[in-house]
Simulated assay, not measured.
Amino acid sequence: MDHDSMQHFSAGLSTLLLAYVVSVIGSLIGLACMARARAEPTRATKVRWTAFGAVAIGGVAIWLMHFIAMLGFDVPGVPIKYSVPLTALSAVVAIAVVGLGLSLVTLIRFTAVRLLVAGTLAGLGVAVMHYVGMSAIRFRGDLSYDPRLVALSFVVAVVAATAAFWFTLVVEAAAARLAAGLIMGVAVTGMHYTGMAAVRVTTDPAVAAPQGTTAFDLVFPVFVLSALVVAALLWMLFTADDDDVPGGIA
């Protein structure tokens, strides 16, 4: 089947807007957790806030954004299902890789080199999560990719993620934090749709009917779980005691 027959906005541009907004919200929460981790005096609390930041950025800003954006993916006349284990694995990959990147600038002394490595890891987390998530797609046919656009999607993710980390770590003004969240949202959504532009679909009616779950069957549990995660992270940020942190979160 021709690539042009695919639809990335089958539900309208609302999926793009919602995906970007969710990505920005997750990024802002995660970057706030990241700043908090750097300000904490003890290693245990640094580790805790770093983990919270990884969940917010990896789980909400990256994975949930991808899930929302994929609600607009459609190949007319071809039923599409998803492997639940691989879909879940993509979330784990995003959280783990982002957590590793964050730890380089929250648990040890900050340097420009570590910032670059952390941004690279976070960007790779965005990209790897995307392609693991795409491997969960099941339909009568195969997916292939334009390698040039795949490479570009990795570059977009790494550059924008590094820029977002720089704004958070180097510039402490509130406006810079907001800019960091907006940039991180661009990193995630930009990488996603660049990666989707690389997709090529080939259908084959001889292939057995796909096994798995439709994206819309996953909407309710995914959104309920994500809402609980966001609410819990916001509650912890707003109720955390700043008295033990020199200068607060600032």
Results as ranks from 00 to 15, higher is better:
M1P: 10
S5V: 12
S5H: 15
Q7M: 05
H8T: 13
G12Y: 11
S14C: 11
L16M: 04
L18R: 04
Y20H: 12
Y20I: 06
S23M: 07
V24N: 00
I25F: 08
G26P: 00
G26A: 07
S27E: 03
L31M: 07
L31T: 00
A32P: 00
R36P: 02
T42Y: 10
T50Y: 04
A54H: 01
I57Y: 06
G59E: 12
I62A: 05
L64Y: 00
H66W: 14
M70R: 01
G72I: 05
F73C: 09
V75Q: 12
G77F: 13
K81W: 03
S83M: 07
V84L: 14
L86Y: 09
T87K: 08
L89F: 09
V92T: 06
V92A: 14
A94S: 15
A94T: 05
I95G: 05
A96T: 15
G101C: 07
G101M: 11
S103Q: 04
L104E: 04
V105Q: 06
L107P: 08
R109W: 08
L115F: 04
V117D: 02
A118M: 07
T120K: 01
T120L: 15
T120G: 15
G125W: 05
G125L: 09
A127F: 02
V132D: 13
A136K: 02
I137P: 02
L143A: 06
L143G: 05
L143T: 06
L149I: 02
V155N: 01
V156D: 07
V156Q: 03
A157D: 04
V159G: 07
A160I: 12
T162R: 08
A163L: 13
F165M: 03
V170S: 11
A175C: 10
R177C: 05
A180D: 03
A180R: 00
V186D: 07
A187Y: 12
T189G: 01
T189C: 08
A198K: 09
A198G: 12
A198S: 14
T203R: 05
P205A: 09
A206G: 10
A206M: 12
V207L: 14
Q211T: 10
V219G: 08
F220V: 06
F220G: 13
V224C: 10
L225S: 14
F238W: 14
D242N: 03
V245T: 02
P246Y: 02
P246I: 09
I249R: 00
